[in-house]
């Protein structure tokens, strides 16, 4: 959804439109109110970046929250619309993550450990130019090796980000833009695997990831460096991509 121009209506005009909308439910007025507050939805959506969901999807969810807020807002209460809308939109975004992203709700301690693990792996890889082993991470974090393994595996339950995900807080650049060369990836992978077109069921981004790992032979840490994401993130993405490919092959068992 494209961003709109900043709100040019003053507070009184907004309140007046809300009163009219409350009485008439005129779709035209609703559109004006939506346009006037899309920046708010966009801004709130951006707060949820780096949790593994594409910005466009987040903006869509925030916009749904905005529509609900507009329908439910009572202009006769002595409160600004934005004061009412922010918790409604944020609630919609949180519900989205609760319902659609996390497959298993991890205990808070385990979630925090997984997050700290991710940071520790990234820091070690940057410092040493290679992936750490479990013992090294355990030493770094002053926890047991079993706890490291538990955290690594539980990270599979945390959101699996798509390759559409923005690569950084301040950047809307798709990871695909960083990878590039997806046409070549498709051709080479399909030839190597002799899958006669099975790769075409994957997104170009997934094909590119497989290309980097299985044709160029880059390690997960090297891919992580190239994509500016964590090794654990690459691991999750690769696993999901392989699952998609396997599922497709299982569904279409032809030789």
């Amino acid at each position: 959804m494209p961003r709109r121009a900043n709100n040019t209506l003053n507070r009184e005009a907004i309140q007046s439109l809300f009163r009219t909308y409350q009485k008439t439910r005129d779709p035209g007025i609703k559109n004006v109110l939506v346009d006037a507050h899309l920046d708010l939805a966009h801004s709130l959506a951006r707060r949820f970046l780096n949790r593994g969901e594409p910005l466009d999807d987040l903006v869509q969810v925030a916009s749904m929250g905005l529509l609900k807020a507009i329908d439910r807002f009572d202009p006769d209460r002595n409160v600004q619309f934005t004061t009412y809308a922010v918790p409604t939109i944020v609630g919609e975004l949180k519900r989205y993550f609760r319902d659609r992203v996390s497959t298993i709700r991890l205990p808070r301690g385990l979630r925090e450990r997984t997050h700290a693990l991710n940071n520790a792996v990234q820091k070690f890889s940057q410092q040493h130019g290679r992936s750490p082993n479990v013992a090294e991470i355990a030493r770094e974090m002053s926890i047991s090796e079993e706890e490291v393994i538990e955290g690594l595996e539980s990270s599979e339950s945390v959101s699996v980000a798509s390759l559409n995900t923005s690569s950084g807080e301040e950047s809307d650049l798709s990871l695909l833009d960083i990878i590039g060369g997806e046409d070549k990836a498709l051709q080479i992978l399909d030839e190597r695997l002799s899958l006669a077109g099975a790769m075409s069921f994957l997104s170009q981004r997934e094909q590119s990831l497989l290309y980097l790992r299985f044709v160029e032979g880059l390690s997960q840490t090297e891919i992580a460096g190239r994509l500016r994401i964590s090794q654990m993130h690459v691991s999750r993405l690769l696993r999901r991509t392989l699952q998609s490919l396997r599922q497709n092959l299982t569904t279409n068992k032809a030789t």
Binding site: L193, L249, T250, K253
Partner: peptide
């Protein structure tokens, strides 16, 4: 078949 080729490749 495709599944076996895929598994072997990986």
């Amino acid at each position: 078949n495709k599944i076996d080729r895929y598994a072997r490749f990986i």
